[in-house]
Design a protein around this nucleic acid. Sequence first.
DNA 1: ACCTGAACACCGTTCAAGT
DNA 2: ACCTGAACACCGTTCAAGT
Lengths: 182, 182
Amino acid sequence: MRADAVRNREAVVVAAASVLADAGLNASVAEIADRAGVAKGTVFRHFASKDDLVAAVVAGLIDDLAAQAEGMLAGPDPLQALHDFLAAGTELQARDQAFCELASTAELVVPGLAERRERLEEVADLLALRARESGAVRAEISGRDVIGLMTAAYQGACATGDPQRWPYFLSLLVSGLRHADA
Amino acid sequence: MRADAVRNREAVVVAAASVLADAGLNASVAEIADRAGVAKGTVFRHFASKDDLVAAVVAGLIDDLAAQAEGMLAGPDPLQALHDFLAAGTELQARDQAFCELASTAELVVPGLAERRERLEEVADLLALRARESGAVRAEISGRDVIGLMTAAYQGACATGDPQRWPYFLSLLVSGLRHADA
DNA sequence: ACCTGAACACCGTTCAAGT
DNA sequence: ACCTGAACACCGTTCAAGT
């Protein structure tokens, strides 16, 4: 790969990460190209579609979150670890609009993100299992459900008009996990 | 207003209600016009913008929900009434894609929906107050928060890939309301 | 090889021409 | 008055022409 191509590809990814975080999934390719200092066509030379570019950016975010989660598995307090993971995932939604929009979509509009999500679900599964075995959580809950809880907390807060209040919704959900009857 | 105009306007609203429920907010005006049997231009003769048409359709949905909620205020069990209202709102999201998308947006993209939402919040406020006064709910919760809970339940279920599981997320949230520590 | 910008299809919106 | 469809601006995507 030619040196300018490497540079351009990287510039596109960096620009896309920033623009997508701010403006979400319908940020225009034109704006990303502008910010990267390349022509629109160059974006499509490196990524087959806008969705592919989005996938490349968001895959990095999911991987970071999964890595964080693996670190939490070693913590002494299983309930705290689960709570920390939920908080990290919810806060990521608050920080990144594109991730936020993807997190609340059932079908992954964006291909190539499915495996990343599976890895995340597996770690979440372990966190949930430990919390249940410790007795702190009574509700039956899968790793997939844990991901759902992150989205629930953030979207709930958004719907009140004050996204910053997500910790309140998260604490409600965690109370629910602890005391759920059945 | 001429007779054909009345007929066309109604046809547009009916078509829009159906198309928006199925395809959500980015259903095209062309498809709505087709289904209504009119030209695209006719849609814009009756509604200044696509957003205005969306508002007209969704306002009806919100009003229906608010009316249901007012009926529930008279019920004997305050916790049950709150739960029923939450279930009705969540189920509406499951049934109507456009309502669902609007419910998880902080800023009402669509103008003219703010007052409708306020009326809904007021009824929700009363339902929340009664549930708290009855002692069944410990968490402090406003009418606005109640709306947020509907969105939280449905979006959480969506994020697991199985929207039909919203009752599980709703029951977690209601458990949280009952037992929240603080 | 890779980059560029003109070109195309799609969609919301406008408006001149019809009835 | 109201309806229609051609026209415009915007955006994702393609590709012929340049280096």
